[in-house]
């Protein structure tokens, strides 16, 4: 990593003193606007959902009250059931084999890069994955509430939020974006029977307005946009 990074830097034209320049970049983050990827291969279906926290729970600050935490937990529980959000025809016979849901901070990218990200990614994802698989709903609430509190709040608030404020005082509105990331694995008895997907998602999450969809199957890749006004994706001939 460090070697590659330095070679990459040396290729760029650098002025003296810029040696400690760090790359600053932020992903696009637009409230109301999420992304859903769907891949079909044989009987397997892989799905990925990335949505701003605002679309799902209506806020993006770290959970502060019990009510916030309850909202996040309820949302994660809902997001863990993809077939209830993205309804596929019963004839396809799809079942969820794996569902991982995580809440990721968006500002991980710029200043506190790596450790922050890793923490989120690893801890949260793994834990969620396990919970969901093994004991689904029971331990779910307790554990998550705690996790969230311990890791999220403390670290985040104490270390990150503070220096953030100092540095980016002028863009306070921008700070603390977060996103829900979900990954699903499904198996379908007859994927070719999926001629449409109903987006119950928009009923469940009233703040969500639009999903950009990338879909790939043996018939090639396609892009779609599904909006709240017409929460249905016609897939006849696409799979």
């Amino acid at each position: 990593m460090s070697f590659k990074f330095s070679t990459a830097l040396s290729l760029t034209i650098l002025t003296a003193g810029a040696a400690h320049t760090q790359t600053r970049e932020l992903d696009a983050h637009q409230h109301g606007h999420g992304a859903l990827n769907i891949a079909f291969e044989g009987a397997s279906v892989a799905m990925e959902l990335e949505v701003p926290g605002a679309d799902i729970v209506g806020f993006e600050h770290p959970a502060e009250s019990d009510a916030d935490r309850a909202l996040i937990d309820a949302a994660i529980a809902q997001l863990a059931k993809p077939l209830e959000l993205f309804a596929m025809p019963a004839a396809a016979g799809c079942t969820v084999t794996e569902a991982n849901v995580a809440l990721l901070g968006e500002d991980d990218h710029d200043e506190h890069g790596d450790d922050h990200k890793d923490e989120h990614d690893d801890d949260l994802k793994d834990e969620h994955a396990d919970d969901h698989k093994d004991e689904h709903d029971d331990d779910h609430k307790d554990e998550h509430a705690d996790d969230h509190k311990d890791e999220h709040d403390d670290d985040h608030n104490d270390e990150h939020a503070d220096d953030h404020k100092d540095e980016h005082a002028d863009e306070e509105g921008e700070e603390g974006h977060n996103e829900f990331h979900a990954e699903y694995a499904l198996t379908c008895a007859d994927p070719s029977a999926i001629d449409a997907i109903e987006f119950v998602y928009f009923e469940r999450f009233p703040n969500a307005a639009e999903l950009d969809i990338q879909l790939i199957s043996d018939k090639g890749a396609k892009g779609f946009e599904v909006e709240r006004d017409e929460p249905r994706l016609d897939l006849s001939g696409a799979i």
Partner: peptide, 17 residues
Amino acid sequence: SKLRIFTLQRAINDYAE
């Protein structure tokens, strides 16, 4: 595998270097 295509896409889009 087509199932991993989006993971790969994200890895390339998030490529730090």
